[in-house]
Design a protein around this nucleic acid. Structure first.
Length: 878
RNA sequence: GGGAGCAUAGCUCAGCUGGGAGAGCAUCCGCCUUACAAGCGGGGGGUCAUAGGUUCAAGUCCUAUUGUUCCCACCA
């Protein structure tokens, strides 16, 4: 039963209906089945705070292409979707919402907060995954997971306990990156460095018992002077040898601090003297450890100065800075202020300048975990596409520091550590009944929760049921590829890799396919503050999901950023319409017929397009294998539009319109066959329209499980391809000439094809109907000589033949001479180039035989054509 | 300070392992040719950033330079 199709493709009438149908049919659902070969992708879980943005759209489209393609290849595909609780990002939002109601976290306490948080999750947690569906993604929603699900939370606890048992998780008082706004520690990866011009203040401290002697140093953060516990110089600095071992006095607080020698200090920067503040600077911390210096913390969690800061206590860190500079100046100990270009770390969430603070936190020891992740890449077990990101991956892992995993937040996985008054700390999945040391039953669980990436690091196996040994885990792990933007290589990819190796004994994926990020028309990163974000849902509303997807796929190389142009979506929409109309045309002509054809019935044109489709299938498959999705899409696009629509369909028309044509069925069969092949190759890219047409044209119940086209040697018709290409070239030449001479299509011309070659004449005799249809010829006469052709007919030379078109009244002999003379010049140049090449002993001696053969063929071809054009020019008196 | 990417037609970008420069959009000319004007046919437009080098042959490989974007980094 065939439906009538509109002249314009309307995605609205198709997309939602088909998606609901796919879901209902469980086409996306994967079942563990050991008799099948799995192909698995873990969808990067979006934050539950989010809305679908173009970055997601790009990421999802690429994954969906791979999943749908592999499914058609017969793999047991699983695309695991889910969402991430996004600890800090979400908590900030919930706090904001509460603030609007005039409520603070402390007002309602941890339990009250969590209640609200879960309510909030119930409200908006599913929004984004519902938006994902609009894109047509073939994800297994039946298996959708959330990082705070019971099962995933259990995995988190299991991992924490195991790492702790192995000594890879420890608790310690260290300097951490502290956000004074969010009042939590954050990991190194969450600190964003930004270059800026800042103050560089020079001060001097008096040296004890050496009146008139001062140590002069410079700092970018004068407020940290309050925590100074030493002054350091380079041990080899001749200028300061006499000061080493002496004592300086921090004037404002009157604190006596030693002058020490340490290699860290450079002699050629600043004054060669450095103030040492172990509690507020990562370098100084190390020096403090080396020299056993006291660590004096001068700051509160909110960035104000604490009681160690004397009279500055209570001031904000920047207020204190000003005040201290002023006070030092009053004492004539302020030397000068310079401007210094340096980089400053801010919290990636709120941009607040990060303060290094001493904190008792939980850390993951990274060295041992990083090693196998490094080896996996070096041993080629892990492949990163494009390759250049492999260096970034290695560099990060080779320089990794311990990972601070505790966060002073409530929304997340609470750290499973229990404290007893006796000082004993118990780490266990469940709260112990009593302290194992003293037997006390009053145990307090750690107030902190875990970094959100601690749970997402487990995503590839926690979603499959780990630590339970589920059939899904056995079948679908390890996954095949991880598709993500380069932005989260460190946050997530690296952590999944070492987690997978540590807990599963196997890499979580074989390939990492990295793409770029979406930018606006001007190349700027899309951001909320700039307000330059494009809503993909709006683009889908206006142009359909297929059009959006296709525009995100073509013209982009792996790893490169992508600018969004609505014009590109329009162009994609036009392509969809083209396919739609080609299908309409074919269905109209098919009617109720079910044409059949044997290979022997096929004409040269049929074989030509079949051979082309065959080769495109091979190439596109190869491109997809290499993650060259843009190239793949482009090839199918060109094949379908240029070759199939603009040439083959046009060539089929004369056969279709002639009921008596004995090859009519072969044409119909070929049209339908090639259309379906094309739809299959397009389906991963544009799933909706291809499904709609496929089912309408009787391809089957769904294209999703149709077999992906493979190269078939029996469809490789080289001779016919060459023959049709020859006809195409002739048609193009004739069109070109007509256009040059301003001959309207309505004026049909007689065409004479002259060739001495019997073989060539055969080609043109068979191609006559195409020349008539596509080059506005009234009739085509093929002959061996020029008998009967008007002397002033315009002529063109094509390989192996000359073509004459009598346009008596239109011909301007002078212009003709000009045209032919130009043609001669062009061919002479060609022949000259090729001949020079062939006369070059280096070329003939070293180039591969096939290349030399090609050049020889060119020389012969152009030589022949040149002779013919010269002849024609002579014939009209030129 | 270290590293990476990019620089190709007016614009946005492709161009895989080196073998005569491509697409989309824009532009110009001509077409309502019975699938499609969201279309059809034809055209113009590029010293592939610059300078060297390797090679019979370089947009493609190497080196340097310039411009640009980004990543990493505890120089006070």
């Amino acid at each position: 039963m065939r439906k009538e199709l509109d002249t314009r493709y309307d995605p609205k009438a198709v997309e939602d209906r088909l998606y609901a149908h796919w879901v209902k049919q469980k086409y996306f659902h994967a079942v563990a089945d050991e008799t099948k070969t799995p192909y698995t992708i873990m969808m990067p879980p979006p934050n539950v705070t989010g809305q679908l943005h173009l970055g997601h759209a790009l990421n999802l489209t690429l994954q969906d292409i791979l999943i749908r393609w592999k499914k058609m290849q017969g793999f047991n595909t699983l695309w695991m979707p889910g969402t991430d609780h996004a600890a800090i990002a979400t908590e900030v939002k919930i706090v904001e919402k509460m603030a609007a109601e005039g409520i603070k976290k402390v007002d309602i306490g941890r339990e009250g907060f969590m209640e609200r948080a879960w309510a909030w999750y119930d409200d908006v947690g599913g929004v984004i995954s519902n938006q994902f569906r609009k894109l047509g993604v073939a994800a297994d929603w039946d298996r959708e997971r959330f990082t705070m699900d019971e099962g995933l939370s259990d995995a988190v606890l299991e991992v924490f306990v195991r790492l702790h048992e192995k000594g890879l998780i420890y608790r310690g008082e260290r300097l951490v990156n502290w956000c004074t706004h969010c009042k939590t520690s954050i990991s190194d990866a969450e600190v964003e460095h930004e270059d800026q011009k800042g103050g560089f203040w020079h001060f001097k401290y008096p040296v004890k018992d050496m009146p008139g002697t001062y140590v002069e140093f410079a700092t970018t953060r004068p407020e940290t002077m309050l925590g100074d516990t030493a002054i350091a110089v380079n041990p080899n600095d001749e200028r300061y040898q006499h000061l080493i071992g002496k004592t300086a006095v921090m004037p404002i607080l009157g604190r006596e601090i030693p002058i020490i020698a340490d290699d860290y200090v450079k002699t050629d920067f600043g004054t060669g003297m450095v103030k040492i503040t172990p509690a507020h600077d990562f370098n100084d911390f190390e020096i403090g450890v080396r020299h056993n210096l006291p660590k004096i913390n001068i700051m509160n969690d909110d960035g104000t100065i604490n009681e160690n800061g004397g009279k500055y206590a209570g001031m904000d860190r920047y207020e204190a800075r000003e005040a201290i500079v002023l006070d030092m100046d009053m004492r004539n100990l302020f030397v000068k202020k310079e401007v210094l270009e340096n980089s400053i770390g801010g919290h990636d969430r709120c941009r607040t300048v990060v303060e290094p603070l001493m904190k008792l936190q939980w850390f993951v020891k990274m060295e041992g975990l990083a090693k196998p992740a490094i080896d996996a890449y070096k041993n080629d077990e892990l492949r990163i596409v494009p390759e250049r990101f492999g260096k970034v991956y290695l560099h990060w892992l080779e320089n990794i520091r311990d990972w601070c995993i505790s966060r002073q937040l409530w929304w997340g996985h609470r750290i499973p550590a229990y404290y007893c008054a006796c000082g004993e700390v118990t780490v266990a999945k469940a709260a112990p009944d009593a302290c194992s040391k003293c037997g006390a039953v009053e145990l307090k669980q750690d107030e902190d929760s875990l970094d959100t990436w601690f749970s997402s690091a487990l995503w590839p196996f926690s979603t499959l049921g780990w630590p339970e040994q589920t059939p899904e885990l056995a079948h679908f792990y390890p996954t095949n590829v991880l598709v993500t933007a380069y932005e989260i290589l460190f946050f997530w990819v690296v952590r999944m890799v070492f987690s997978g190796i540590e807990f599963m004994g196997q890499l979580p994926f074989k390939d990492v396919f990295i793409h770029g990020i979406m930018r606006d028309e001007q190349g700027r990163k899309m951001s909320k503050s700039l307000g330059n974000g494009i809503d993909p849902l709006e683009a889908i509303e206006n142009y359909g999901a297929d059009a959006l997807r296709f525009s995100l796929t073509t013209g982009n190389a792996p790893g490169n950023d992508l600018r969004f142009y609505i014009e590109k979506v329009e162009a994609s929409r036009n392509f969809l319409n083209k396919i739609w109309n080609a299908a309409r045309f074919i269905m109209m002509n098919l009617g109720d017929a079910e044409p059949t054809a044997e290979i022997d019935d096929l004409t040269a044109a049929d074989r030509w397009i079949i051979a082309k489709a065959n080769r495109v299938a091979a190439e596109v498959t190869q491109n997809l294998d290499n993650y060259e999705l843009g190239v793949a899409a482009d090839k199918v696009y060109t094949f379908m539009w240029d070759e199939f629509c603009d040439w083959y369909i046009e060539m089929a028309k004369p056969r279709l319109y002639n009921e008596a044509d004995t090859t009519r069925d072969a044409a119909l069969w070929t049209l339908r066959h090639v259309l379906i092949s094309g739809l299959k190759m397009l389906h991963p890219f544009i799933p909706f329209i291809t499904e709609e047409i496929f089912t309408t044209v009787g391809g089957g119940d769904t294209i999703m499980t149709a077999q992906w086209p493979v190269f078939a040697a029996e469809h490789d018709f080289a001779a016919e391809e060459a023959e049709v290409e020859q006809i195409k070239e002739a048609i193009r030449a004739m069109r070109n000439l007509r256009s040059n001479m301003n001959v309207p299509p309505s004026r049909r011309a007689k065409v004479f094809v002259v060739s001495e070659s019997c073989e060539v004449r055969g080609i043109y005799e068979r191609g006559a109907k195409y020349i008539m249809a596509l080059a506005s010829a009234a009739e085509v006469t093929v002959q061996a000589d020029r008998d009967g052709i008007e002397a002033n007919a315009v002529s063109i030379v094509v390989p192996g033949a000359e073509i004459f078109m009598p346009f008596a009244d239109l011909v301007d002999i002078e212009k003709e001479k000009e045209r032919l003379a130009k043609e001669v010049a062009k061919l002479e140049q060609e022949v000259g180039r090729v001949t020079a090449k062939l006369n070059n002993p280096g070329f003939v001696g070293k180039a591969p035989a096939s290349i030399i053969e090609e050049e020889r063929a060119k020389e012969a071809k152009y030589g022949e054509m040149l002779a013919a054009v010269r002849e024609q020019l002579k014939a009209i008196g030129g």
